[in-house]
Each structure stands twice: as structure tokens, then as C-alpha cells.
Design a protein around this nucleic acid. Sequence first.
DNA 1: TAAATATATGAACAATTATTCAAATGAAAG
DNA 2: CTTTCATTTGAATAATTGTTCATATATTTA
Lengths: 112, 112
Amino acid sequence: MNKDLIHEKLAKRVKNKMLSDELLFDVAEVFKIFGDSTRVKIIYALKLSELCVSDLAFITNSSESAISHQLRILKQAKLVKSRKEGKVVYYSLKDEHVIKLFEIGREHVEEL
Amino acid sequence: MNKDLIHEKLAKRVKNKMLSDELLFDVAEVFKIFGDSTRVKIIYALKLSELCVSDLAFITNSSESAISHQLRILKQAKLVKSRKEGKVVYYSLKDEHVIKLFEIGREHVEEL
DNA sequence: TAAATATATGAACAATTATTCAAATGAAAG
DNA sequence: CTTTCATTTGAATAATTGTTCATATATTTA
């Protein structure tokens, strides 16, 4: 426990330059979406092709229910979009940004 | 539940092109680190300056214990490094990659 | 050596979350 | 219209995780 600030001027200066709690919270929220391996698998598969729920279940070795739950999360986060064709729902990535985020994460891992 | 694969050829082709489970798991692990607002705050603060634990506690409005726990996680993930000077431990970002990851996440949030 | 200080650590607790299972939709086909 | 099929949904469960609190460690100072 500290009685006083150790580097008062520096710490206050940095505190003033901080981004808003709200923005930093939102940034964390986006990363949280990518922070699950099932979702990462889905994202990478959709990077390769538009796919339906049962395709994704097969590709990721998960149940269709699990995939459907995760797809809902990805859709709410605006990372994927879907279109319906009869009984089948096709999912794809919303935009290039999703791929960019994935690739930067991948680079980081591969460079260690 | 599906008896058979709906798009057998496509699904098998995509499955063959998938990255290894291990790599995708590791990618998720990195994003998981960024998926907490306290850690994101720490990372952004350290982007501005090298700081000690109590500075970070002040800047992020958290307890020193909480910050210390999070710094351990960040250090294990090789996202931050530290140096000791007397009683004080100074933390800083490990490399530019950490900043890049943060910035891409920030861009994504700000573009919505 | 004892007191003070900065940080670290471990256990406990609460909260969040991913999966499973069972059941419900919604659409096509028989 | 009944059955089949693809997907969705909700509740339950198990596992993970961030914070707190108390205590420990390490370093400096009195």
C-alpha cells in the first residue's frame, strides 16, 4: 500500500492523456470476442469461405448448437453476417477488418 | 442435428485448409489477454510511459494488488517487461507489436 | 535491528461464460 | 398435414477468471 504517489507528476500527466474508460472498455470487448478458440476457428473458416452452421460444426469438431450460440455472439458483435436460403443459414465475415485483426494476432503468435 | 454434411466437398476442403488447433488456440490466448479492460488500460498507459505498479494503480483506479496480478499475466504473455530499481518495479511494453495490436482493436471500435 | 515501503502472492468469492441437452422454430418435401 | 431437416433457443452445469483481503517478501531507511 502506498501513502502517496511515487511519481506524482508523471502519473497525473499519463492519467490525463488516458483514453476514456468507455473506449478502453469497448476495445477490451472486441478482443474478448476473439479470445475463444471456437470463435477463432469459426472466423478463420469463414475467412476461407461462406459456410452454414453444420459445415462449421463439422470443420471445428463442435456441436451445431455450440456453433449456433457462438455465431449469435459473433453476429451481435458485428463480426459476421448471415443470409438464409431455405432451411440453411449461410454465414460470412462482415468486413476486411475482421481478417486484419485475426492476421495481426496470428503474426504475434508466430513471431514468438 | 444433421445426418450428413450439407456441403461435403466444400466443408472437407475448408477443413483441410484450416490452421492447426494449436495455433488457433494460441491466437485466441493472445486476444484473451487483451480482452480485459484493466489490462487494456495498463497497456495503453504503458504505451505512454514506463510506469511502476502504484502509478498504474492510480492511473487505472485499481488496487495495487489487482494491478500486480494483471501485470503478472501480461508478463507471462510476454507483452510487458520489467526492471527493478530499489523497491520500485518499472514496467514497460515488450515491443511495438503490442501497440499495433491495440491500435487495430481501437480502430475497429472507432469505426463502428 | 526495527520500522516503513513497494510489490507480490495465495486463498476465497463472485461473476462471467462455453458447452450440453432438450425442446422449439421455421422451412421444405413427401 | 405430417415428417424431416437445419437452425435456434433456454436452462443447467462446469470451468475460468478478476478482485479483494490478508499476508509475505524484498529493499530502504531510521
